[in-house]
Amino acid sequence: MSPDNIFEGANEDEESSSESNPSERKLGYGAAVVETMAQIMREDESVFLAGEDVGAHGGVFGYFRGLQPEFGEDRVVDTPIAEQAIIGLGIGAAVQGLRPVVDLMFMDFICVAMDQIANQAAKLKYMFGGGATLPLTITTAGGAGLSAAAQHSQSLEAMLCHIPGLKVVMPSDAYEVKGLLTSCIREDNPTVFIINKRKLADTCHVPEELFEIPLGEGHVIREGSDVTVVAIGRMVDEAKKAAEKLSGEGIDCELINPRTVQPLDIDLIVESVSKTGHAVIVHEAVRFGGIGAEIASQIQEQAFDYLDAPIGRVAAPFSPIPFSPALEKHYVPDAERIVTSIKNLF
């Protein structure tokens, strides 16, 4: 298996969110999924993968390619198109002590499986008085920007974060894919691991060996003194660009990537805002009821006295995601809109 060449055509080399040496090994975001899965499946026999087209086809985005040839059809299971049963498959096997990774091809499809996710997986432990342990990982591809239209582009993390019992993880680069996916699979709670499908070909430094990034710990990507920018998932890239631009205009951004949105590292955010006095939150999901609303609310609860301006939010408008590239490019937040939002604070 040579996972590192299956996403050729990476359009950019980006800096890893870790301290990195440019001479170190680089790996694509999608390739990091395969590599992590393969390494974990080699070390832990209780891990198996199930989902639509994950086996022979390697997933519709290819980020499971090569797993079935190595691990066989019993550990890399091609399932029927049956989202409820796919999650149920994971729940039942997890309760039995295995560590299933079940894939819902597109994040939009969680709506099809919502009972099994929200009423079963998330609540079993609590309802059962703590007796059940659910080491279940749900992988799914979210995010817009491919003209995949309204049912194949959504960012629905806020819905999931609202359900006690789930952990929701949004890697922004290949390094985080490896570290966070490892943590998710080793985690004893149900996690939803959201793979951003516009990031698949992007590369950055990723260590060869497995490593964990703790769930619930955010990361300060860039220190700054004037404004705290909290960017989620792929929006980290756009926020970086915005910060670069603004630094030339005298605004010094502190950029925070929460990495997981449930649990949320609010302490890190509050600490930053207490220093900068300004906050802007950026996400791909629609603005109304988005995770940004929760972050803004917690900031004002805990750092109200430090705020010098209202908290800004950069997010999608309240409409389904349009198909036409002409519309979609305005739908998804970008660096320019982030710049405008930040400037509005001053």
Partner: peptide, 25 residues
Amino acid sequence: MLGANGIVGAGVPISVGAAYANKLT
């Protein structure tokens, strides 16, 4: 006993998972 269930029909997919674990192990 993997639970009674307040959602009609929801236990059936969970049994599929347990059966899968039985098969795999």
